[in-house]
Measured scan of single mutants.
Amino acid sequence: DVEPGKFYKGVVTRIEKYGASINLNEQVRGLLRPRDMISLRLENLNVGDEIIVQAIDVRPEKREIDFKYIP
């Protein structure tokens, strides 16, 4: 289970102007929005990149997770 405040290694699977889709595994994925990137710009991400993200909002009833990137 993903817990708010914990850090996870994820893989960038899609990049859109509203954010990047991050997969932690086949069943768990979430969104990294541009506003939640401290020192990383969306255009510097590539599909397949592995990054460390922090879960900031977990809504299991909607199967949604928001991530934050902290270098």
Rank of each mutant, 00 (worst) to 15 (best):
A20L: 08
K6D: 02
K6R: 13
D49A: 06
R35H: 10
I70L: 10
N46L: 11
D57I: 12
D57A: 15
Y69C: 06
Q54V: 12
E50M: 14
F67M: 03
V2G: 04
I56L: 12
R35T: 09
L40R: 06
A55H: 01
I51D: 00
K68T: 06
R14P: 00
L24H: 01
L45Q: 00
V47C: 05
R29D: 06
R35Y: 07
E64W: 13
P4N: 10
L32A: 01
D49Y: 05
E3A: 10
L24I: 14
I70F: 11
K9P: 02
K17Y: 13
L42M: 08
I38W: 06
L45S: 00
R33Y: 04
T13N: 04
P71Q: 07
P60G: 10
D1I: 14
G5R: 04
R14M: 10
E16V: 08
K9V: 11
T13E: 07
K6I: 07
E26D: 14
N46M: 13
Q27V: 13
R35V: 08
S21M: 15
I51N: 00
I65S: 03
R33N: 03
P34E: 11
L42R: 02
L31K: 05
I52S: 04
G5E: 03
F67K: 03
N46H: 15
S39Q: 14
K9H: 09
T13S: 10
M37R: 01
E26T: 12
V12P: 01
E3I: 15
K6N: 07
R59T: 06
Q27D: 12
N25C: 10
M37D: 05
A20F: 08
I22W: 06
G5V: 04
S21N: 08
L31W: 13
K62E: 10
E50V: 15
V2F: 10
V47E: 06
N25E: 05
Y69N: 04
S39R: 13
G30V: 08
Q54M: 15
F7V: 05
I51A: 00
I15E: 00
L40V: 07
E16P: 01
V47Y: 03
F67P: 03
V2R: 03
I22P: 01
L45T: 01
I70W: 13
I65G: 03
Y69T: 03
R35E: 12
R59H: 08
F7K: 04
L24V: 10
R63E: 11
R63F: 13
E3M: 14
G48I: 01
D66S: 14
L31P: 02
V11N: 03
F67Q: 02
A55P: 03
M37W: 04
E3S: 10
I70D: 13
P34Y: 08
G5I: 02
E61K: 09
K6T: 06
L42P: 03
N25V: 07
I51M: 03
R63K: 14
Y8M: 01
D1P: 11
Q27T: 14
R14V: 08
D57R: 15
D66N: 11
V2N: 02
E50K: 10
V53A: 01
I38A: 10
F7L: 06
V28Y: 11
I51K: 00
R33H: 06
K62L: 14
N23L: 14
D66V: 12
A20W: 07
G30K: 01
K62N: 10
P4H: 06
A20Q: 01
V11R: 11
P60A: 11
Y8R: 00
E64P: 04
F7N: 04
L40H: 06
Y18M: 11
P4C: 13
G19N: 03
G19R: 05
G30F: 09
I56D: 02
R14F: 09
A55Q: 03
E43I: 08
N44A: 11
L40Y: 04
L32I: 05
N25H: 07
I51C: 01
P71S: 11
K62G: 08
I22S: 02
P4Q: 11
G10F: 09
Y18E: 13
D57N: 15
Y69L: 06
A20I: 13
R29V: 14
D49M: 13
L42S: 03
S39E: 14
G48R: 01
Q27S: 14
E50N: 08
F7H: 04
P4M: 13
P71W: 08
Y8Q: 00
L42Q: 02
E50D: 08
P34T: 09
Q54E: 05
V11C: 08
I51F: 04
N23A: 15
L45I: 09
V2Q: 03
K9M: 10
I22V: 09
V11Q: 05
M37G: 04
L45A: 01
P71R: 09
R63H: 13
V11W: 12
S21Y: 15
K9D: 01
A20T: 03
L45G: 00
R41P: 05
E43C: 13
P34G: 08
K6V: 08
I15G: 00
E43Y: 09
L45E: 00
G5K: 04
S39C: 15
E16G: 15
E16D: 15
G19L: 05
V53D: 00
I52P: 00
V53E: 00
E26C: 13
R35M: 08
E43P: 04
G5W: 07
L40I: 11
Q27E: 12
G10A: 10
G5A: 04
N44H: 14
E61C: 08
S21L: 15
D1Y: 14
L31V: 09
L45V: 06
N44R: 06
V28W: 15
R63G: 15
A20D: 02
D66H: 12
R63W: 11
E16R: 13
T13W: 06
E43Q: 09
F7P: 04
I22T: 01
K68F: 08
K17R: 13
I52R: 06
E64H: 10
L45W: 01
G10C: 11
Q54G: 03
V47D: 02
F67A: 02
Y8T: 00
P71G: 13
L31S: 03
Y18R: 12
L24W: 04
I52W: 15
I65K: 03
E16M: 15
A20M: 05
N25I: 06
V53P: 00
